[in-house]
C-alpha cells in the first residue's frame, strides 16, 4: 500500500517510492528513492513532519512530506 509521507501514522515505516518535491533538497538530507524511513512525529496544522532515516531524524514541511510517496511496510 502506498501513502503520502504526510499520511504515515506515528511509528509507521515504509520505503520511499517517488518524490515530487525538490529531490535535491531531500536527497542531500538522506531522503531518497528506495530509502527506508519511519515516522517520528507529525505536528498539527502545518507540520513539521519528522522521520527517521538511517538513525537520523530529518524534519520537513508538511507540503514537502505530501510530495513523498512511500510504500508502507506490511504489519
Amino acid at each position: 500500500m502506498q501513502k503520502r509521507l504526510s499520511e504515515l501514522e506515528f511509528s509507521e515505516s515504509g520505503t520511499v517510492r517517488d518524490i515530487f518535491a525538490s529531490r535535491h533538497e531531500l536527497n542531500c538530507l538522506g531522503v531518497r528513492v528506495r530509502k527506508h524511513l519511519t515516522m517520528i512525529t507529525r505536528q498539527p496544522i502545518k507540520g513539521p513532519v519528522v522521520v527517521a532515516v538511517d538513525d537520523m531524524e530529518v524534519a520537513m514541511g508538511l507540503e514537502t512530506a505530501r510530495c513523498v510517496i512511500v510504500e508502507v511496510d506490511r504489519p
Partner: peptide
C-alpha cells in the same frame, strides 16, 4: 549509490 537503498539524483 548505497547498498542500503537510495539513489542520489
Amino acid at each position: 549509490a548505497g547498498t542500503a537503498g537510495g539513489v542520489p539524483e
